[in-house]
Each structure stands twice: as structure tokens, then as C-alpha cells.
Simulated scan of single mutants.
Amino acid sequence: MTKFLLAVHVLAAIVAVGPVTVAASMFPPVARRVLAAPGDDGALGTLNLLHRICRIYAVVGVVVPVFGFATASRMGVLGSGWLVTSIVLTALAAVVLGALVLPGQSAFVEGRGAGTARLAMVTGVFNLLWAAVTVLMIVRPGSSTGA
């Protein structure tokens, strides 16, 4: 059962978090294109699509920590430092996404915002947090696997 939970956790991370990080990273450059050429319907359509991907996959991404907790519980590592750190970083990433990235994208799409530099920065922070979580999940300092 542990292998199944771990497989679902990893697959969910790839399928759910991957698209959010890519779409969120693509949003600021496309937003700058929209600002440079306001009549570019193609860029505006792309911008709307990227925002929709971020919103939908952010909701789907809730599956990742759910299966992560189930896997960690089954493995008996819920109190491990690397896992606690990963949980904190995941929570921070969720806050950055939910409180800064998605509202910033919404404001831009609705014509209320033009802060592409700030949006690019907070998106970068979001991506760095996920990168740190990914490294911790692979390396697992102090784990018995010797990785």
C-alpha cells in the first residue's frame, strides 16, 4: 500500500504542480506582450488560458499533500525534519500561489493590474519553494535510504 500511495503522490505532483509552475512562469512574459501590443488577441487568449490552467491545477494540486501525508504516515516519517520542512515549504508555496500569484494574474486579466515585475518575482518565489520541496523529497536528509 505504501508504494501505491507514494506513486499517486509523485504522479499527482507531476501532473498537478508541474502545469501550475510552468503556466505561472509563462504568464508574466505573455502579460508583458499584452501590455506592449494591447490589440494582440492571440496573446490575450494565451494569457487567459495560462490563468485558467493555474487556477484549475491549483485546486487539483490539493491531492499532492493529501497523498503525501498518507504516504508519510504509512512510512512512519511524519516527525522527520526533512518532512516537516517540506510541509512548511509546501504551505508557504500554497500561500504564495493563493494570496499573490493567482490574485495578481486575476487583476491583470481583469485589467486592474500592470505589475508584471512583481508578478514575475512572486511566481519565482513560488517556483523556488517547489524546487526546494522537490529536492528535500529526493534527498531526504537523514533518511535510512542512504540517498
Score class of each variant (00 low, 15 high):
R112H: 08
Q105C: 10
D40V: 02
A12H: 08
G45Y: 02
M1H: 13
V133L: 04
V84N: 11
S86W: 09
L50Y: 01
V88F: 13
L6R: 12
P29T: 01
A107P: 07
L50A: 06
M137Q: 07
A114Y: 07
M1E: 09
G76N: 01
A36C: 03
V88Y: 06
S86Q: 09
I53P: 08
H51A: 15
G98L: 12
M121K: 08
V34Q: 02
G68Y: 11
S80P: 06
T85M: 00
M137H: 02
F108L: 15
R74P: 09
V135H: 04
I14W: 12
L78E: 04
V96F: 00
A107I: 07
V122M: 08
L47C: 05
A107R: 01
V95Y: 02
M137R: 08
A23H: 03
L102Y: 10
V84K: 12
A37C: 14
G81R: 10
G113V: 02
G61H: 05
M75V: 12
A13E: 11
G79R: 13
A13K: 04
V66Q: 00
F69S: 07
F108A: 15
A23P: 06
M137K: 09
N48A: 11
P28R: 01
C54D: 10
T2K: 14
I138R: 13
I14D: 07
V60D: 07
R74V: 10
V77F: 01
D41G: 12
V15M: 14
A12Q: 09
S86P: 04
L6D: 07
E110S: 11
L100T: 12
G98N: 05
A107V: 09
L92R: 05
G39Y: 10
V88S: 13
V62Y: 05
V60Q: 04
V77M: 13
L11H: 10
A24R: 03
L47V: 14
H51L: 14
F69E: 15
A114L: 14
E110G: 03
L89V: 06
T123C: 06
G104S: 13
V64I: 05
L47E: 04
A131W: 10
A117Q: 09
G111F: 12
S144K: 09
G104A: 13
L5I: 08
V30M: 10
V122H: 04
A131Q: 07
L129M: 05
A117W: 03
G146F: 11
A147K: 14
T85W: 00
L47K: 00
S144T: 14
A58M: 10
T71H: 08
V8W: 13
A43I: 04
I56F: 14
Q105F: 02
I87N: 04
P65V: 01
E110T: 15
T123H: 06
V88M: 07
A93S: 01
H9F: 13
T2G: 14
G146C: 10
E110L: 11
N127F: 04
A24F: 00
L89G: 12
K3P: 07
